[in-house]
């Protein structure tokens, strides 16, 4: 007994009606029946594919949320103390800052700014803005942050390695806050501003629950 020709099976699956002798063969041959059924299924699925070309990507905030989630556990490696090199840099800059302060540099000169947008899990009305001034102060304004039983903390994160971050301080009840950026922190590297929800659990590392994020640009 000859099986049906593979090209013929494909044609039968796509459109053609089997002839009489082909029907007879199919009646008696489980292998050809099986192949034909599978090819018909594939052809049926194939006919539905037109709408699936160029599917829209999910909105970008979905990725931001994924990024912040996967960085969560790894963040528990935040160093408790500044590494010596950074401490030395801080000391040096503090000395320079003392000298500069004498000349009263224009405090309102903005060296970098960021717009903070809510992550996927946060109500869309939340947001904020950040300005970093020439004197190393960060002015941060936030609005509509979700209520928390803990507190909100501000971080600078390295977007290329989300385990690297610097804690800047907490937000109080006011909608705006001024936080000092530790001198020596390279804001070109730590360019991602992050506001997180931190529980009062005595753990100084990032909780992994980011609420707002934005990238500093000069």
């Amino acid at each position: 007994m000859h099986h049906l020709d593979p090209d013929r099976l494909v044609l039968l699956a796509l459109s053609d009606e089997p002839g009489l002798d082909e029907s007879d063969h199919l009646d008696g041959c489980a292998a050809c029946r099986h192949d034909l059924a599978a090819l018909r299924d594939v052809a049926g699925i194939g006919a539905e594919l037109q709408d699936l070309r160029d599917l829209p990507a999910p909105p970008e905030h979905v990725w931001s949320a994924i990024e912040s989630e996967i960085a969560g556990p790894a963040r528990r490696r935040r160093p408790r103390r500044l590494v010596p090199a950074m401490a030395a840099a801080v000391a040096a800059v503090v000395a320079v800052a003392g000298a500069v302060a004498f000349f009263r540099a224009p405090a309102e000169q903005v060296v970098a700014r960021a717009t903070l947008t809510p992550l996927a899990t946060v109500p869309a009305g939340a947001g904020g803005s950040v300005r970093v001034l020439a004197d190393g102060q960060m002015r941060i304004e936030v609005r509509n942050l979700p209520l928390t039983t803990g507190f909100h903390e501000v971080w600078l994160i390295d977007p290329d390695d989300l385990t690297r971050m610097v804690a800047l301080g907490n937000l109080g009840d006011r909608p705006d806050e001024v936080l000092p950026v530790p001198a020596g922190v390279d804001m070109n590297r730590y360019s991602l501003v992050d506001v997180s929800d931190e529980p009062h659990d005595g753990d100084a590392t990032h909780s992994g629950r980011s609420l707002l994020r934005g990238t500093l640009t000069s």
Partner: peptide, 10 residues
């Protein structure tokens, strides 16, 4: 995610 995010989302 770039390759398959759209399919997952769909």
């Amino acid at each position: 995610y770039d390759r398959h995010g759209a399919a997952v989302f769909y």
